[in-house]
Structure formats: C-alpha cells, structure tokens
C-alpha cells in the first residue's frame, strides 16, 4: 500500500489548475442538506420503517377482519374531503410522532456531535459559512422532513385506499363511495395548511434545541430538558405561580384553536376533523401575534447558534 502511495506521488504529470467554478448558495445548501441525510439516516429510515409496518398491518387487517355491516353510502356519510383527510391524517399521525422524536434528537445532536468528535475542524476547513451550515440543519428540520412526512402520508393514504378497494372487491368491506377529486384536493390543501402552521408554530422549539446543541459542552439532552423543568419547580415553590408552565403549554397547543376557529376536534366523532378542516382559519393563524413573536424568538436563537458555532472552541 505504501509503495502505491509512492507511485501516486511520483507518477503524476504537471498539475492542471483546478476550475474555480462558482458555487451558488442554493446548491451549497442542497449539498449540506444531503450531507445531513447521509449522517442522520434515522431522519428518513425511521418514518419509512413505520410506514412499511403500517402497510403490512393494513394488508393483514384486510385479510383477517371483515366489516360487512357498515354502509358508507348512506345519508350521513361523510363528505369526500373529510374521508380523505381522516385517511391521510390517520396515516400521517404515527409518522409525525416518530419524526418529531427523531428530529428532536437530531437537532440536539447536530451542532454538538461535530465538536465532540472534532469533525467540526474538517467542516470548517471547507469554504462554508456558519450561517449556511446552521441554516441547512434548520432546513432539514423545518422543511425537508415535514414535507417528506407529508408526502409519505399522502402515499400511504393512497395505498390504504387501494388496499381497501381490493378488500371491497372481495366483499370483505363495503366499497368506498366514488372518488371525489375536488374533495381530495381540498383535503390536501387543508392538511398542508396545518403543516405550515405547525412548522411555523413549533419553529422556536427547533431553534431552542439547535441553540442548546451549539452551546452545551456535554449532555445536551440534559441541558435542553432540565432547566425548563427545574425553573418550573422553582417558580412553583418560590412564587406559587406557574407562568412558565402556562407558556410552555400555550407554545405547544396555542395555535390550533386559532386555526380551527375554536372548534372542538374529536369528541367521539372522527369526521369532525373533516368538518374542521373545511373551515380552517388560516388567515387568523398566520396573522396571530404570538406566532410571529415565536418566530422572532426562534430567529434570535438561530442567530445565537450561528454565533456560538463561529467561535465555540472545545476541540
């Protein structure tokens, strides 16, 4: 092997000038996003595994259980839109839960692990600015994975529909009433609106995790979780108040009543979701003052993470 390297050293002709091509911001970011998906494979493997399990489950359930008493064409049948939305919502929920967990760990790890294993010295030897690097991680969490989960949920709902139709053909379940293209499109738009509002509303959480990841010298998980918990306990015993808890609860659920126009979702009637989706108040959600305050705070925390990555030196 060593002699081969010597050959490599000796046997090369005169050096040709490397092409000093311009590389645009968009293609750099695309490359960085791909890099994230190479390193953190759980980001796409976990949802795919869950999706595969769900498809298997649907096939087995179709073979095993028969549902012959229901009738989906009666007077009170849900609108096509509601049905599609429920189908896709059911498909997307497990995917979203798994993705949120994987994303939380990803965000906590992505700026910490590179310092821990010193690979940051390699990444920093490349002409990539800290803002682009941090932005690429944010893009993964707020754009690439959410859109991926949405697309996978859509694919799954189509697969489930297909499985249902096959079962219906064998008389194991009642047939689905005719395909309602307009209803389907409306459902997709409504679900996408929910996704956008959700991403914007939860962006401060993502930014917080990035900031902790850039800051912590060890155990970023504890640094991310302990201070809020301890602060709540201290607040409770010192002032007998719970502003922090209220804030966290609000930051977790607060936007959904605004988006759904204060409708009660669920309440034993699955198809209420469809009705709610039909009357989404996207305008109210997107003009919500607290949504924008949250985004401003998120931007500040991302800026903090960029500054920290610039000079944090524990290699």
């Amino acid at each position: 092997m060593n002699s081969k390297l010597a050959d490599a050293a000796a046997g090369e002709g005169p050096r040709e000038a490397a092409p000093a091509a311009r590389i645009g911001t968009a293609s750099t970011l695309l490359m960085l996003v791909r890099r994230e998906l190479w390193e953190h494979r759980a980001l796409w493997i976990a949802p795919l595994v869950v999706a595969a399990l769900m498809v298997c489950g649907a096939v087995v359930a179709g073979l095993k259980y028969h549902l012959t008493h229901g009738d989906m064409s009666g007077e009170d049948r849900p609108g096509g839109m509601a049905m599609f939305a429920v189908m896709q919502g059911a498909a997307s929920t497990p995917l979203s839960v798994v993705s949120l967990i994987v994303l939380a760990f990803y965000l906590l790890d992505c700026l910490y692990a590179e310092r821990k294993d010193r690979s940051i010295l390699f990444w920093k030897s490349l002409p990539v600015s800290d803002d682009k690097t941090v932005l690429s991680k944010l893009l993964v969490a707020l754009l690439v994975v959410p859109l991926g989960v949405f697309a996978l949920g859509l694919l799954l709902s189509l697969l489930f529909t297909g499985i249902w139709e096959v079962n219906a053909a064998f008389g194991r379940v009642p047939p689905i009433p005719g395909w309602d293209m307009l209803g389907w499109l409306k459902a997709e738009i409504a679900l996408l609106a929910c996704l956008i509002v959700g991403v914007l509303w939860y962006a401060p959480y993502a930014a917080y995790l990035l900031l902790v990841s850039a800051w912590a010298r060890r155990t970023p998980f504890l640094w991310a979780t302990l201070p809020p918990v301890v602060a709540q306990i201290v607040e409770h015993f010192t002032f007998d108040t719970h502003y922090l808890r209220d804030l966290l609860v609000y930051r977790t659920y607060g936007i959904w009543p605004t988006l759904f126009g204060h409708m009660q979702v669920g309440r034993g009637r699955a198809f209420a979701l469809g009705a709610a989706l039909d009357r989404l108040n996207l305008g109210a959600a997107l003009t919500d003052r607290n949504l924008w305050i949250g985004l401003a705070v998120a931007a500040a925390m991302v800026f903090g993470a960029i500054r920290l990555r610039r000079y944090r030196d524990d290699t």
């Binding site: 695309l30 294993d117 690979s119």
Partner: peptide, 19 residues
C-alpha cells in the same frame, strides 16, 4: 467524520468547494 463514505467525501467537498 467517521460516518462519511469516501465517495461522499469527494462529493461533499466537490459540492461546496469551487477549487
């Protein structure tokens, strides 16, 4: 980075380095 493949190393450096 320990997870990086050789082919990925070439691709990532080529993808961000103009020279």
């Amino acid at each position: 980075p320990r997870w990086l493949r050789v082919s990925q190393a070439l691709e990532v450096v080529g993808g961000v380095h103009p020279r």
